[in-house]
């Protein structure tokens, strides 16, 4: 194992170790220290370190591990957790079988960031809530029990689903919204057995412990995701992202949709939203409603209303209660060609 003491003893800045293992086992061992963290593309973690939001004592660089393959395995597409966002988006298998994922990736960040960011890192990125980033303001996610600055503050970008008194932040990823819609499975190594977690259960709601974004345990490593191939969905899928500028902006809301049609009837459907919750938000009620129904504007509208049934706003984000259903309807209209 390559071990670099990043800074010498008389280190000028907060000291941290940096190791770059080449095997999964060594990586898992290296990351056992309480304040050790994996780093891959670093597109979020380095920012967090600069701002003092995260202060790891050891960085375990996993980019030396062989985890960037993209391949078809039976009825699934396997994507290694170190596959770059830009590579996944442009990969022939992904464009052919999972165009929704390709679209979602293209909608995220900027080309420069996509060239650095990995699939696993994308899943692990933290919220972009301004209170989370500013050490001089309260944030339960950053500093448990310090309060939530956003709830009564500036919450235009914040959640309308599944928030708690402790936290109303949203998960910023586009990629994850597509993976949640496509019923992906997360593959997790922990040194013993490979754990498989349905993608929609990987991230968690804030509840009483918003400092935890997901259900990954300490000492576990995401090795990849598996996405079932569905030829019908590949024919009819669309990612719509509404944002304040055309690129390099987080979603106000986004919708990932995939349809399987039987004539005018919806045989099967997947719907998920981004920018609305602490995790990619599957619209299961709307999906259930639309199954076996005709693809009509009235049904789409009804489904969007059902999807918003449990939505709540906090002031600045009230517009999302209108924008979210409108975007669902717009996406379904476009997909169904009406």
């Amino acid at each position: 194992m390559l071990l670099v003491k990043w800074l010498k003893k008389e280190a000028p800045v907060i000291n941290f170790d940096y190791v770059k293992p080449t095997t999964e086992q060594n990586a898992l061992t290296a990351c056992k220290d309480p304040l050790a963290q994996f780093i891959a593309g670093g597109t979020n973690l380095v920012d967090l370190m600069k701002r003092g939001v995260t202060n790891p004592e050891k960085l375990v660089d996993i980019t030396g591990l062989p985890m960037s393959n993209i391949e078809q395995k039976g009825d699934n597409i396997f994507i290694g957790s170190l596959a770059l966002n830009s590579v996944v988006a442009e990969h022939e298998l992904i464009k052919k079988h999972l165009p929704l994922l390709s679209q979602a990736l293209q909608a995220g960040a900027s080309p420069q960031i996509r060239n650095m960011a990995t699939v696993g890192g994308n899943m692990m990125q933290r919220t972009r809530c301004g209170y989370f980033y500013d050490l001089s303001m309260p944030c339960n996610k950053r500093t448990p029990n310090s309060g939530c600055g956003a709830k009564e503050g500036y919450n235009r970008m914040h959640a309308i689903f599944g928030a708690s008194d402790k936290c109303i932040a949203v998960h910023p990823s586009d990629m994850c919204v597509a993976l949640a819609a496509l019923d992906a499975t997360v593959l997790i190594a922990n040194g013993k057995l490979l754990r498989r977690v349905p993608f929609k259960d990987f991230h968690k709601l804030p509840g009483s412990n918003p400092e935890k974004d997901n259900n990954l345990l300490k000492g576990e490593l995401i090795t990849g995701v598996e996405v079932p191939i569905n030829a019908a969905f590949a024919q009819h899928s669309l990612y719509t992202k509404i944002r304040d500028r055309a690129s390099y902006a987080f979603a106000l809301v986004s919708v990932a949709a995939a349809l399987e049609m039987n004539g005018k009837t919806i045989k099967d459907i997947r719907l998920a939203m981004g920018g609305v919750a602490h995790k990619p938000w599957r619209l299961t009620t709307a999906e259930q409603f639309l199954k076996s129904k005709e693809a009509t504007p009235a049904n789409f509208k009804q489904a969007a209303m059902l999807a918003l049934k449990d939505a709540t706003s906090y002031g600045h984000n009230q517009f999302k209660l209108t924008l979210a259903p409108n975007t669902i309807v717009h996406t379904l209209h476009t997909l169904a060609g009406i």
Binding site: G130, Y131, M137, G149
Partner: peptide, 14 residues
């Protein structure tokens, strides 16, 4: 945020 007098979006991402 007028409660704190601090900027929320003082970076090029926001």
């Amino acid at each position: 945020d007028e409660r704190y007098g601090r900027w929320i979006n003082n970076n090029f991402a926001d």
